[in-house]
Design a protein around this nucleic acid. Structure first.
Lengths: 256, 256
DNA sequence: CGGTCCCTTGATATTCATCAATATCAGTGG
DNA sequence: CCACTGATATTGATGAATATCAAGGGACCG
């Protein structure tokens, strides 16, 4: 069950009608490489809902799997619940990204997806997508590519959590967000962190306090400028360096 | 490039000829849900090589992507190299599992795959698999399921690395291996760890020494019995408990 | 049997989590 | 508009978990 049914007030006709063919995210999303009639057919099966407000779910953990969701605008976090009841965030997702892929196997969503801000998603019924993929080979290929990309991204995150220090983790996240904002036509140097410090810590496997201290330290070092949720990356080269520097000589960063 | 070309000595006709239809791993592997003529067609495109010996690669990091590989017997580790040159193991893979899925997106293998012991794999050319998947819907579905399962597994590992203590991590790995051996018809209580302590530590994000100490401690607590590479799980219930217990009251385990 | 690699064990160092206190922010209602 | 409330963020002090360093012991392989 999604939460969408509960909000009858806001109806944004323009967004409801927007189709893949007019969507600026085409090149990042499922339609990549698909044109003309094929794109129309894909378009036809996608439902576009009214926006979800912050805190509402795209889908809940354990929900039956019926559709994949492409994020149109806003942002979403996906998370699982561990045996002891605590939350582990598995990803932050930006427009053009597709979530729900991990549910195909078990037919249930093994993670929940919650809007971090006002967000709208495209609802892509999986049964019909599968059928269509048999008719449009390029669509099937793109679906496999997207899943492959997701596996790759998870593997990178594994390396992050397995091997990297707190500094490296935060620097990696900031640069990852930066790159993704840039791909979407936003500034790579200045953006809003839609997730809380808590979420960041959770995602990176760090305590909130550690995240907070890192923001402070990075700011003191002139690497970034933070103002609540807004952040500007002042020295991306050095952030990049921190990312890959391993455990060695971290304190030297302030000098070099 | 695989290493297979270098070993001309051993030719095991019986294994070269073994087809999916006679393979005990059918139910875990790509052929799941595929029968009769369809299975024959799948069979026809799979190449079965002579075994790789310990340390040889199924594929190297950066290799061009041409095929997926199903493990027939033995075991394999997959790993990436971080910017600073160190290795991060992303998975240990047992018979019936399919590796190489993360290469579909970029057309290059973003990780390497190395045999942990004498291992043979089935070589599944991806182009032909894709074609066949269009003709056999069940095959396409199974492929998506397998990829979805992989994403799910990675997400679980993320939780492990992000939130769990050293004890929890090792217990989780042991139980995961146990479960997978059981699915493959081996004893869940007693098996050989084909990977080194180093590999285990690397995979779990721990130092070798920590892993070693944990083995010792678990043994002292009567949870396991280790003899070099061989391990017996004496108290799986308690291991399971450690897995989920969170950060609280770890020392109580020895008493309770 | 000798060499090398891998594993184990102990002592010490470091990073980061935890605890606790304060500060800031976003709503809410007076 | 301002005081109040709860959530979120920052900052400092302390401690615990685990890495690192160093050395010895055992297994495997020619």
């Amino acid at each position: 069950m999604t939460d969408t049914g509960h909000h009858h007030k806001i109806i944004d006709i323009s967004s409801v009608k927007q189709a893949c063919s007019g969507c600026s995210l085409q090149q990042l999303c499922l339609p990549l490489g698909i044109n003309g009639d094929d794109l129309q057919r894909l378009d036809a099966l996608i439902k576009r809902h009214r926006p979800l407000t912050r805190g509402h779910h795209v889908f809940h953990l354990g929900d039956e799997f019926r559709a994949l969701y492409a994020i149109r605008c806003g942002s979403v976090k996906t998370y699982t619940i561990t045996e002891d009841g605590s939350e582990q965030i598995t990803g932050f997702h930006l427009p053009g990204e597709i979530i729900g892929l991990d549910a195909i196997n078990s037919n249930r969503h093994p993670c929940g997806a919650k809007a971090l801000e006002t967000t709208s998603v495209c609802d892509i019924p999986f049964n019909r997508l599968e059928e269509l993929a048999l008719l449009i080979p390029d669509l099937g290929r793109q679906l496999l590519r997207i899943m492959s990309r997701e596996i790759q991204a998870d593997e990178e995150l594994l390396t992050l959590l397995g091997k990297k220090s707190a500094e490296e983790r935060l620097a990696s996240l900031l640069l990852s967000l930066s790159k993704r904002f840039q791909q979407r036509g936003f500034s790579p140097r200045e953006f809003r962190l839609s997730m809380s410090r808590n979420d960041i810590g959770n995602y990176l496997g760090l305590a909130v306090e550690t995240v907070s201290r890192l923001f402070t330290r990075f700011q003191q070092q002139g690497l970034i400028e933070v103002q609540n949720k807004y952040i500007r990356l002042q020295n991306m080269e050095q952030l990049q360096e921190i990312t890959g520097l391993g455990a060695c000589g971290k304190t030297q960063l302030a000098e070099g």
